[in-house]
């Protein structure tokens, strides 16, 4: 049970490593950006998992309901910010990829490296 209870955290670790591997192993810039995005998404999962309280519900105060158990809203707020950061990073990286394609005519890093060496 203890192991199953940590299910989310295992997924977090696996996703993080898949993202990192994808980032390091691929020379295609777009594929690397996908890896970067997965790497960041794994962290979102970490934060979302830690806010869960047993039997907790959305933290909204209702009239007439007392002794309500709430999930911790703070990590949710934090990760909302981090998601925005992640989207901005992905968008910026893709924009740079577009400009790399315009300047070099390719998005394969090894080919770009070869072209730079000739220069």
């Amino acid at each position: 049970m203890a192991v199953l209870g940590l299910y989310n955290y295992f997924v977090f670790a696996v996703l993080l490593m898949i993202g990192l591997y994808c980032l390091l192993a691929r020379t295609n810039i777009i594929k690397s950006i996908i890896g970067l995005s997965m790497f960041q998404s794994a962290v979102f999962l970490l934060y979302i998992s830690m806010d869960k309280v047993d039997g907790g519900t959305a933290p909204i105060i209702q009239e007439g309901v007392e002794n309500q158990i709430f999930a911790n809203p703070l990590p949710q707020v934090l990760i909302l910010t981090a998601i925005v950061v992640g989207i901005s990073t992905t968008a910026l990286a893709l924009a740079v990829a577009v400009r790399i394609r315009e300047a070099y005519g390719t998005i394969e890093e090894d080919k770009i490296q070869e072209m730079d060496r000739k220069q």
């Binding site: 980032l23 690397s32 790497f39 830690m50 981090a82 990286a93 740079v96 770009i112």
Partner: peptide, 29 residues
């Protein structure tokens, strides 16, 4: 034009670094 590929490499390294920091802060929290 090499500025672009340098930027891309910096984005990758910088984001991995910042995300590591974020994971650490998450654990502390």
């Amino acid at each position: 034009r090499r500025a672009l590929i340098s930027t891309y490499r910096y984005i990758v390294m910088g984001t991995v670094g910042a995300t590591f920091y974020l994971i650490g802060v998450g654990f502390l929290y």
